[in-house]
């Protein structure tokens, strides 16, 4: 499997744990990894950000790339966002297009999505 990110497979879903920082083009490894999971037949990808302290504009660009690639082939949801990252995703409009869960378990179950106010 491409990439260096830790991950957990469960049925047709997979949780990918994002790095501490997603702030340079090395972050594309996350995109490559999601691509590889899709190619392997996984239907749902949960990107968990509970260990991520910083996502900058490069990170946003990479995450948009992941969402665009998965569109129509499967589902991608986010979980474990820290306040600071949620704010960034909110101001760049990501939260209007992707379901954000409090934690990976909720994300795997496909429970209620978060909105900005709940965090």
């Amino acid at each position: 499997m491409a990439g260096r990110h830790r991950h957990r497979e469960t049925g047709t879903s997979v949780v990918v744990y994002a790095d501490n920082y997603i702030n340079d083009i090395e972050g594309e490894k996350l995109e490559e990894m999601c691509d590889a999971f899709l190619a392997k037949g996984f239907k749902k990808i949960v990107i968990d950000f509970s260990g991520t302290d910083l996502v900058n504009s490069i990170g946003v660009s990479i995450l948009i790339g992941i969402i665009e690639k998965i569109k129509g082939k499967g589902a991608v949801v986010f979980s474990g966002l820290k306040d600071v990252n949620f704010q960034i995703f909110h101001i760049v409009g990501l939260t209007r297009h992707i379901r954000v869960f409090n934690n990976e378990e909720d994300a795997l179950k496909g429970g209620a999505s978060c909105d900005g106010a709940s965090l």
């Binding site: 340079d24 083009i25 900058n56 504009s57 490069i58 660009s61 790339g65």
Partner: peptide, 18 residues
């Protein structure tokens, strides 16, 4: 090449351009 690529990603991320 890396600087240009990073710069493009920054622009795209800032405006959430895909």
């Amino acid at each position: 090449t890396r600087v240009v690529k990073s710069s493009l990603y920054m622009v795209m991320g800032t405006f959430s351009a895909s």
